[in-house]
Design a protein around this nucleic acid. Structure first.
Lengths: 134, 134
DNA sequence: GATGAGGCCTGTAGCGGCTACAGGGTCAAG
DNA sequence: CTTGACCCTGTAGCCGCTACAGGCCTCATC
């Protein structure tokens, strides 16, 4: 690929993203369609690299595609206050904390279940008992 | 519906499940197809109620449909040892613990991010900085 | 210039676990 | 006999990818 621009495979390697995922991001509108070479290959510039890196970090932090889209939109309005950014991050944190609480409760329940196993036959299995109707 | 048998709506209410979900469970083979009335309505018996309750509790505990299917199969082999049951539960617990660890790390990262917010303009937003490429 | 390997292209379908229709049939109360 | 609540099938959508199939492009090598 010519100077400065990246093929989809190169962009994929540069961002630890699969090629199919990049095309999916393009389809879903979060990564703009790049120009094409004469042969029809996508040719990405540094802007695409930066944007995809942003998306990947956001995904690693658990933000949804929609949230990332909103963050990217906000990032373009450089002299507005950053409260909206803060709000998205806080909402996501709250969601993470809800999931943590749920999973913690789940772990306790599962551990209690497993602790009751007497390693006998299925007929007297307490794990199955706990699942069977009361 | 006649004595002892339940319509799909009644079964749904009895198990806090949506009607569509019950039909989905039947399609996916985890709940057996019930007999039908002359008008073509599903007519569920106590066995179905018990089985669906089991499935629901399993789902509430985070087991996958496949795991629940395996547990149900095991539950039928009453004089085999219950090690396989134990193994499924332990594996699920391990998975839950992995997710807990991941979410905990995520929470720390997000909290750090949010703690850096200086409530200025978008241009100087540290949350966006943290997402933007290095 | 032919060939072959490895990339790239589009389009479509699948994952899990539901959920939500549309467009009909059934049934019991009044 | 009508009304309205229920039920039926079939299909499509959600999220965030992932995995093909069946081709085209490019480049190095002979």
């Amino acid at each position: 690929m010519d100077g400065g621009s990246l093929s989809i495979g190169e962009l994929a390697r540069a961002t630890s993203t699969k090629v199919e995922t990049i095309r999916y991001y393009e389809r879903s509108g979060i990564l703009p369609s790049p120009p094409r070479t004469s042969g029809g290959y996508r040719a990405y510039g540094p802007g695409h690299l930066a944007r995809l890196s942003f998306v990947r970090r956001g995904r690693d932090l658990g933000f949804s595609i929609e949230q990332i889209r909103a963050l990217l939109d906000l990032a373009d309005q450089r002299d507005r206050p950053c409260e909206a950014v803060d709000a998205i991050a806080r909402e996501h944190l709250a969601e993470v904390e809800r999931k943590l609480a749920d999973l913690g409760a789940l772990r306790r329940e599962l551990a209690a279940l497993i602790g009751q196993c007497r390693h006998g036959t299925v007929a007297e299995c307490r794990i199955l008992d706990a699942l069977a109707p009361a």
